[in-house]
Computed example of a mutant assay.
Amino acid sequence: MTHTPRTTPTDAATPTARDLARQIAVISALGFTLVAVLVGVGGLGGTEVENSQGGQLSAQGSFLAPAGPAFSIWSVIYLGLIGYAVWQALPGQRGSARQRAVGWWIALTIVLNGLWLVAAQLLTIEWTVVVIVLLLIALCITFRLSVLTRTPRAGFLDALLIDGVTGLHLGWVTLATVANIAAWLTGVVPDSWADNATAWGVAVLAVVAVIGLGISWRSGWRVAPALALAWGLSWLAVGRLTGEPQNTAIGITAIVVAAIVLLVPVAVAGLRFLLPEHD
């Protein structure tokens, strides 16, 4: 049997001015977002995110908001984005086909991340919903492109800083989008809808389970998105079972969904490792 040789994504073509522009764009995007982060944590005269929008974006803003410690995952994501920005700026990455495929998209996701913080500070909550939905779409495209251009020979840093960081970002923003929309709806729907909050919350979490498994399936059962999604769901459960507003049914459902979205891709990935496919 003959095999057609594949070109690895790390094979570098002759760098162009557009490649340099891409590297600069990623660094510039990160600089913008890090300033927005400083404002979003209360520095530079800004208001902490949980206190903006009248508290609607806090851990108590809706039945689908994760407890406060869940947001520590942003530290991991931002460190990963910093690592990516430094790595992709190296001369050896300038003409990389892999960077050409995903670099501009990663820059877009970084900018949208910062724009969400700006919207939370300066605009109405409806705008935070618009921005986070755009961010989720951009992350889906970025992660899909990452998967399509991935080969086993791409290297550890490639896997960590592109697949890993983008996957974590996607998994977390998937749940953050649900929480953001829930926070917005909590402030605009009639009070009578509160009687059905439990049913709606459980139904939405069931949809999250389907989305989480869909992301894992479409990405070849990569685990990074599932890790972030399960992390957020676990803290959502903590918030509903031990914090305010309390809701036992939603809390227990969140635990079940967290287990599903994490254990299924881990199990499939494990089986694929133990039972590799043969040509």
Rank of each mutant, 00 (worst) to 15 (best):
residue 120 A to G: 13
residue 120 A to E: 15
residue 120 A to Q: 12
residue 121 Q to M: 05
residue 122 L to E: 10
residue 122 L to P: 01
residue 123 L to A: 15
residue 125 I to A: 12
residue 125 I to F: 11
residue 127 W to I: 14
residue 129 V to I: 10
residue 129 V to Y: 06
residue 129 V to A: 08
residue 129 V to T: 05
residue 130 V to I: 15
residue 131 V to D: 01
residue 132 I to G: 12
residue 132 I to K: 14
residue 133 V to S: 09
residue 133 V to D: 07
residue 134 L to R: 06
residue 138 A to C: 03
residue 138 A to E: 12
residue 140 C to M: 11
residue 140 C to T: 08
residue 143 F to S: 03
residue 144 R to S: 12
residue 148 L to K: 08
residue 148 L to Y: 05
residue 150 R to S: 11
residue 150 R to D: 15
residue 151 T to V: 07
residue 155 G to I: 10
residue 155 G to S: 07
residue 155 G to P: 10
residue 157 L to H: 11
residue 158 D to I: 08
residue 159 A to V: 02
residue 159 A to L: 08
residue 162 I to A: 08
residue 164 G to W: 06
residue 164 G to H: 08
residue 168 L to Y: 09
residue 168 L to F: 12
residue 172 W to E: 02
residue 172 W to F: 12
residue 173 V to I: 15
residue 175 L to K: 00
residue 176 A to N: 01
residue 177 T to E: 05
residue 177 T to I: 04
residue 177 T to Q: 02
residue 178 V to A: 06
residue 178 V to I: 15
residue 179 A to T: 04
residue 179 A to E: 00
residue 180 N to W: 02
residue 180 N to V: 03
residue 182 A to P: 01
residue 182 A to D: 02
residue 184 W to I: 06
residue 185 L to P: 10
residue 185 L to I: 06
residue 185 L to G: 07
residue 185 L to H: 00
residue 186 T to H: 13
residue 187 G to L: 03
residue 187 G to F: 01
residue 190 P to L: 05
residue 192 S to V: 11
residue 192 S to H: 08
residue 192 S to N: 01
residue 195 D to R: 06
residue 197 A to S: 11
residue 198 T to Y: 03
residue 199 A to R: 13
residue 200 W to A: 15
residue 201 G to D: 14
residue 203 A to M: 00
residue 203 A to I: 03
residue 205 L to V: 07
residue 209 A to H: 00
residue 209 A to I: 07
residue 210 V to G: 06
residue 211 I to E: 04
residue 211 I to R: 02
residue 211 I to N: 10
residue 213 L to T: 10
residue 214 G to H: 01
residue 214 G to E: 08
residue 217 W to L: 15
residue 219 S to P: 13
residue 220 G to E: 09
residue 225 P to C: 01
residue 225 P to I: 04
residue 226 A to L: 06
residue 227 L to E: 09
residue 229 L to H: 02
residue 230 A to N: 04
residue 230 A to T: 00
residue 230 A to D: 00
residue 231 W to A: 11
residue 232 G to D: 14
residue 233 L to G: 11
residue 235 W to Y: 11
residue 236 L to E: 10
residue 236 L to N: 09
residue 236 L to T: 08
residue 237 A to S: 15
residue 240 R to Y: 12
residue 240 R to C: 03
residue 240 R to N: 06
residue 240 R to A: 09
residue 241 L to P: 01
residue 241 L to V: 13
residue 242 T to W: 13
residue 244 E to P: 05
residue 247 N to V: 05
residue 249 A to F: 04
residue 249 A to D: 13
residue 250 I to C: 13
residue 250 I to Q: 13
residue 252 I to D: 08
residue 255 I to W: 12
residue 256 V to W: 09
residue 257 V to D: 15
residue 257 V to Q: 07
residue 258 A to M: 05
residue 259 A to W: 05
residue 259 A to C: 14
residue 259 A to Q: 11
residue 259 A to D: 05
